[in-house]
């Protein structure tokens, strides 16, 4: 009973030798393709890697990801497991702040994908990141309104129309801070009926038709399907949220962590992300 796990860690240690080498090679490869900047080489690199990589990748890779990444990362996790038989992607979604607190508290995670650079810096400041974070997605605000847009809302200024019930996120949460920035950028002074505690709270008020409009993220509008209509507005570009991703020191599957991050940043990964409403850098 006591020798079994010991032997297992031993075997893993022996395995990590060649894995580490190949991981370093992969890292160099991906660094090259990343610096070359074209998505084509990146995608090609990811494609050519898959046949050779499975030899080195096994075990579980634990990914802590912001709640808004649920749809896209669940899909990417499935793809990763398919591309690397024998691996398992364990996904933990939550508020970025909560996840960051978990990681700095010693939670055994291999990858952290945050919804803001501020929450990422909590982890990097504690020295828990293995390498520098890279931005892999961007999210921006959109007006969510009732299906079919019965109030004919076309701009941020339309939200100030009397009789229109608008909800915003509270300024203490990221979507509220972004809303404030966008409203300031547009010179729009708006008094909502409520400052919601998070973005889903704001969205749900429109889904349940209690409010006529809310400022939420594009990904939320996309996830709500036909229950709300989305209206883009130019001021949203002034309040964009960057999503950084990084490998973690606490993790015990560094090679798979890097491979997962490569997948997220590959052409396939970008496709999945843009399908759920993100923009990619």
């Amino acid at each position: 009973m006591t020798t079994r796990p010991a032997r297992r860690t031993d075997r893993r240690r022996r395995l990590t030798g060649p894995t580490a080498v190949s991981a370093a090679a992969l890292l160099a490869l991906s660094a090259c393709s990343a610096s070359s900047g074209t998505s084509g080489t990146d995608g090609a690199a990811a494609g050519s890697r898959s046949p050779s990589a499975p030899a080195g990748l096994s075990g579980t890779v634990t990914v802590f990801a912001a709640a808004s990444l649920k749809e896209s990362f669940t899909e990417l996790g499935t793809r990763f497991e398919k591309a690397h038989p024998g691996t398992h992607v364990s996904l933990n979604f939550g508020g970025s702040d909560t996840l960051a607190a978990g990681i700095t508290g010693g939670a055994p995670a291999d990858v952290f994908a945050a919804a803001s650079t501020r929450t990422m810096s909590v982890v990097t400041d504690q020295g828990d990141a293995d390498g520098a974070p890279v931005t892999f997605a961007r999210n921006q605000l959109e007006i969510a309104t009732l299906p079919g847009n019965p109030d004919r809302i076309t701009s941020l200024a339309d939200l100030t129309r009397p009789g229109l019930k608008v909800v915003l996120c509270d300024a203490s949460v990221p979507c509220g801070a972004a809303a404030r920035k966008a409203l300031d950028a547009g010179g729009v002074s708006l008094t909502p009926v409520s400052y919601e505690e998070d973005v889903k709270g704001a969205l749900n008020k429109v889904v349940l038709k209690e409010a006529d409009a809310a400022l939420v993220y594009r990904t939320d509008v996309k996830a709500a399907g036909d229950k709300v209509a989305g209206v883009d507005f130019p001021e949203a570009a002034r309040a964009v949220n960057d999503y950084p991703i990084v490998a973690l020191k606490n993790g015990d599957n560094a090679a798979a962590a890097r491979a997962f991050i490569d997948l997220v940043r590959s052409a396939d990964g970008r496709k999945v992300l843009t399908d759920t409403g993100f923009r990619t850098p």
């Binding site: 909800v167 509270d170 203490s172 949460v173 909502p192 009926v193 409520s194 400052y195 919601e196 505690e197 008020k205």
Partner: peptide
């Protein structure tokens, strides 16, 4: 009831947001 200072923001809501 949502959260609006003076109208629907009770102490527990203020605590949570703080």
């Amino acid at each position: 009831a949502g959260n609006f200072p003076g109208r629907t923001q009770t102490m527990p809501l203020a605590v949570y947001l703080a």
